[in-house]
Design a protein around this nucleic acid. Sequence first.
DNA 1: ATAAAATTGACCAACGTAGTCAATAGCTGA
DNA 2: TCAGCTATTGACTACGTTGGTCAATTTTAT
Lengths: 211, 211
Amino acid sequence: MTIIEDLLANIDEEKKLNIINSAMKEFSKQSFQSASTNTIVKEAGISKGSLYHYFGTKEKLYEYLEYFAIKIIAENIINKVNWNQQDIFTRIKEVSLIKFNLFQELPYLSDFSLKVFENKSAEEIMHKHPDFPLALYSQLYNQNIDYSLFKDEVDVKKAIDIIRWTIEKCGDEYRRKIAENKMAFDYKAIEKEIYGYIDMLKDSFYKKGEK
Amino acid sequence: MTIIEDLLANIDEEKKLNIINSAMKEFSKQSFQSASTNTIVKEAGISKGSLYHYFGTKEKLYEYLEYFAIKIIAENIINKVNWNQQDIFTRIKEVSLIKFNLFQELPYLSDFSLKVFENKSAEEIMHKHPDFPLALYSQLYNQNIDYSLFKDEVDVKKAIDIIRWTIEKCGDEYRRKIAENKMAFDYKAIEKEIYGYIDMLKDSFYKKGEK
DNA sequence: ATAAAATTGACCAACGTAGTCAATAGCTGA
DNA sequence: TCAGCTATTGACTACGTTGGTCAATTTTAT
């Protein structure tokens, strides 16, 4: 991994992004076996030789992408989340918008990550990437959160699932529409739509007067 | 399509199911191009010659699967839904369980359908399969439903989205767990879990005393 | 001007492909 | 039993694509 990073450190950021995006696209559309390095280099606008100079083999390229995806998502969340915010709804809003921002620059990060976790269990990933922030995901919905804001009769664990799922599906739907109708990416519109759903759930799950 | 159906009518149901499941599996894991007919026949336990005797080409096989998937889902829903039921929560429960039952016998129907709609718009599908029941999906959440049961301040359209998404994600999560831990498929357990979420949303979105 | 590093793309052996078709197996009715 | 038929097989083919290499070229740094 270090060797690869050393080599990548010397090429300019835009070319690096091109390669990563192109490779993530191919690996998220095809199985590892079927994914074509020819397709990757063509879309990235580099030569076959360069790709193999940077990464050595297809396997190593894939491993680097795994490492990169995990690292960049975790870094963004850890650094940008306001850990003092005790309202889980606001916390979740923050996380979803952080991810949306990331996915703008790395359009296939979402699909690629999904595919990685489809094929490998968290343990396998932990084994290959020991610094994988497994704990982060539970911290996100637990650390310094004030659960007393929920109505007493609400099952908080289920409520959080519903909020998370709603945001994810809302984002999926939006990206589907963009892909289909060539509808423009409108950050503010997405934000507004997601907030509409979240605020509705907040009204339903929180005690009255806890806005 | 008719020619294919005539040929398929003469082979026994189990073999037909094997072919359909095997082909849906391959097409839902690989792109159309990368999907291998060799893999399909191997898993289905038939010879290459038979597959091409039944379907002619890879394209026609894929088209038949498209047709079959749409038809079987629509048939099941239309015939099994109780259209007199005015409670949308019960309606949605019914639909989700109908689908779960279907997906038990056709494990890749869900993934395959998703992929079909990823790659083609509803219009394209309508064009290729003129009897595609496009209207069914809106009927499902509108026909003979009593919206007055919702609290006045609740946005019903958003509420239905949330319910639908929750069920879908709940099912996804369950299937993921089964695939990962080799956890056994437990129909009653899934039903109970889904009902847990739906009832919670019902408590939140319906007027008090409307259970 | 020179050395070193980065980048190229034609090239290759190996492999998997969709589809074919002569041969075989299995079944039918007499 | 056997002829006639259909359903089924899988070895085979022509071909496209693959991951990876490496001598040659360009770019960069000194």
